[in-house]
C-alpha cells in the first residue's frame, strides 16, 4: 500500500501517520501550518494519560481504549512519566471524593501521611485522597515534536498547504484528521472551549498530575518538569477560541492557590484557549466515504485516545477490519 495522504498534523494526524508508517505505507501529511504549534488543539493539552480517572464521567470505551495510550507514547516518543495520578478534595467537598472513588476503578484511598509522602510539597494540607498508581502523563509539545521528528526520519513527507479532503482524495486514499477545522463537513461536530495556563513555579515540585475536585471548578495541574506546570482546564459549551475570560483565569488560579499557596508567586508563562472537537456522545468516530476516512471527535481525550483511534484507522485501511467506532449512520 502506498500514497496515503493525511490532512491535519495534530495529535490525531501524527498518531495515524505513525500507525500507517509502521505498516509500510508511503505517506504525506498536509497541514495549514508548518510544524507543531499553537494552531493545534493538542498544543494546549494537559497530557494526562489517565483512563481510570476519566472513567468518572466518560463512557466505557474511553477507559478501555485509553489503556493503550501510555505504552504507545512511551514506545513512539519515550516521553512518558509513569507516576500515577492523585485526586484530592478540600474537606468540605469530601463527598465528591467518595463519589469519584465509587465511579472509578484501579485506585486506592490514601491517607494524609501517604499524600505527604507522595507529594511532600503539599505538606499536611490534605487528609484524604485517591491514588491511581497505574496512570501516567507526558509533556504534549515534547511528545508531538518527537513523534513528528521520528516520522520525518522514517521518510514521511510533511507539506504546508491548505487541503480539501475531497480534492485530495481524487488522487488516493485520504485520512481527514483536521479536528475542529473539519466542522464544515461534520455538522454534528461541536466545539467545547477549554482554557489553560502555563505557570513557572520552581519552588514547587509535584511528581504527578493532581486533580482537585470542586463542585463548580474542578481543576488539574500537570507537572512538566523544570518547575513548569500546566493548569487546566475549563469546559465550556462554546466554540469560541478568541479569548480567555477573566472569570476562567480567576477560577483556575484560585484553585491552584488553594492546592498550594506557593502558586501565588508563580510566573504566568502562557494563557491558552482552544475548542476541543466533540461529537454528541463525546466519543471519537471514524467515518468512511469513498476514498476519505475521517477520524475525529477526540474531545478532551486527544493523547489518551489518539493511539487507539490511529490503530483502528490502520486496521481499516490494511485489514478492512471494521473499527468499533465506525459511524455508519453518517457515512
Amino acid at each position: 500500500m502506498s500514497d496515503i495522504t493525511i490532512i491535519g498534523g495534530g495529535v490525531a494526524g501524527l498518531c495515524v501517520a505513525r500507525e500507517l508508517r509502521d505498516r509500510g505505507a508511503e505517506l504525506r501529511v498536509i497541514d495549514r501550518y508548518d510544524g507543531i504549534g499553537p494552531h493545534q488543539c493538542s498544543w494546549w493539552a494537559g497530557g494526562m494519560l489517565a483512563p481510570f480517572c476519566e472513567g468518572e464521567s466518560a463512557e466505557e470505551p474511553v477507559i478501555r481504549l485509553g489503556q493503550e495510550a501510555a505504552g504507545w507514547w512511551q514506545k513512539n516518543t519515550g516521553c512518558v512519566t509513569q507516576n500515577g495520578s492523585l485526586v484530592l478534595a478540600s474537606k468540605r467537598d469530601s463527598a465528591d471524593l467518595t463519589r469519584f472513588a465509587r465511579r472509578t476503578s484501579n485506585l486506592r484511598e490514601v491517607s494524609g501521611n501517604e499524600i505527604a509522602a507522595l507529594e511532600p510539597d503539599l505538606g499536611a494540607r490534605y487528609t484524604r485522597g485517591l491514588f491511581f498508581e497505574s496512570e501516567a502523563h507526558l509533556s504534549p509539545r515534547k511528545a508531538l515534536e518527537t513523534l513528528r521528528m521520528r516520522l520525518v526520519a522514517d521518510g514521511v513527507k510533511f507539506e504546508t498547504a491548505e487541503a480539501d479532503p475531497e480534492t485530495v482524495s481524487k488522487k488516493g486514499k485520504t485520512i481527514d484528521c483536521r479536528g475542529f477545522s473539519a466542522r464544515d463537513s461534520l455538522p454534528d461536530l461541536r466545539g467545547v472551549k477549554g482554557e489553560m495556563l502555563l505557570l513557572s513555579c520552581p519552588e514547587v515540585t509535584l511528581n504527578r498530575p493532581i486533580r482537585l475536585l470542586h463542585p463548580r471548578i474542578p481543576l488539574y495541574i500537570v507537572p512538566r518538569g523544570d518547575g513548569i506546570f500546566m493548569l487546566g482546564a475549563t469546559m465550556i459549551e462554546s466554540s469560541a477560541t478568541s479569548h480567555v475570560t477573566a472569570r476562567s483565569l480567576l477560577e483556575l488560579l484560585s484553585a491552584a492557590y488553594a492546592l498550594s499557596p506557593a502558586f501565588g508567586e508563580a510566573e504566568v508563562l502562557e494563557i491558552g484557549v482552544d475548542a476541543r472537537p466533540a461529537f454528541p456522545d463525546n466519543l471519537p468516530r471514524i467515518r468512511e466515504d469513498g476514498n476519505v476516512i475521517t477520524a475525529n471527535g477526540l474531545y478532551r481525550h486527544g493523547f489518551l485516545l489518539a493511539p487507539a483511534l490511529a490503530r483502528m484507522v490502520a486496521e481499516l485501511v490494511f485489514d478492512n477490519t471494521r473499527p468499533e467506532v465506525l459511524d455508519e449512520a453518517a457515512a
Partner: peptide, 17 residues
C-alpha cells in the same frame, strides 16, 4: 447562558442540541 458565548453566539451548537 454564559455572557461570553451569548455575545459571540459561539455556543450555538450546544443550543441547537
Amino acid at each position: 447562558l454564559r455572557r461570553e458565548s451569548g455575545q459571540e453566539r459561539a455556543g450555538q451548537d450546544f443550543w441547537a442540541l
